[in-house]
Amino acid sequence: MKQRFELIEKYIDGSLTSEESNSLEQLITSDSAFSKEYQLRLEVNKAIMEKNIMKFRDNLNMIYNEHRSLPGVVRLLFVRNWHLVSASVAILVIIGGFLISRLNNSSADRIFDKYYSSENAIYMTRSSELVVDAELSIALEKFQNNEYGEAINLLAMLEDNVVAQYYLGLSYMETDQFTEAKESFQFILDQSNNLFIEQAKWYQALCLLKLDNKEAATELFTSILNDDSLYNENATDILRRLK
């Protein structure tokens, strides 16, 4: 049996003489078991060479494992969108609370300094570990490490990505490039149906404040009030101080 297998393998490799090949071909047509063996070995070779399929399966497994690795409670929380919104509210309330506690002065710069804060570090660290997109992940790591220049270079390339544009805006703010930051937040505001709208509006209003465009800032803070945003309380306070 081993000899037969060896013969088939040699035939597949093309290392038989033409005479040997001819007799083997006859065997393949006349002996169904031999033919099946030959077909199996051919198919196995083809399967081994399907690197794209194997990679595809690996990716699917990775996505599934990532999905499964989320704690049951968290998965349950996010089954419906309103839970997702609730969670975002929790985060924003904490950030908002932190910002409120820092409120004191009324000049535009001082208001900005009191109210501006980028995302908290823990949130970023864990997030970047799990974001699949490698470029975004690297960029977010740079942001987290306060390497804003490099973060800007990387994030600016992801021009259609809402998350990238959001952190690009924050990176610009961290490096006092408020005009550019305003543009990044504008991109987010131009997209409908994304979770960063409220934050983008808030940070854009702070940029306008920093750019000394009090009129536009007032307009945006007023719009935040009208949106019934989570930043309502802060916006009310700022508007009162801007008068």
């Binding site: 989320l70 704690p71 409670v73 968290v74 929380l77 996010f78 997702l84 969670a87 975002s88 929790a90 985060i91 904490i94 823990i122 949130y123 864990r126 997030s127 799990l130 974001v131 990505n161 809402v162 998350v163 997209q191 149906n193 994304n194 979770l195 960063f196």
Partner: peptide, 23 residues
């Protein structure tokens, strides 16, 4: 709470990317 907020943060970001791109 920090842990779950981190996880929530991750999902918020990621899900929003997804929803945005699915749309």
């Amino acid at each position: 709470y920090s842990y779950y907020l981190v996880k929530c943060g991750y999902l918020l970001v990621k899900n929003r990317i997804n929803i945005y791109q699915v749309a």
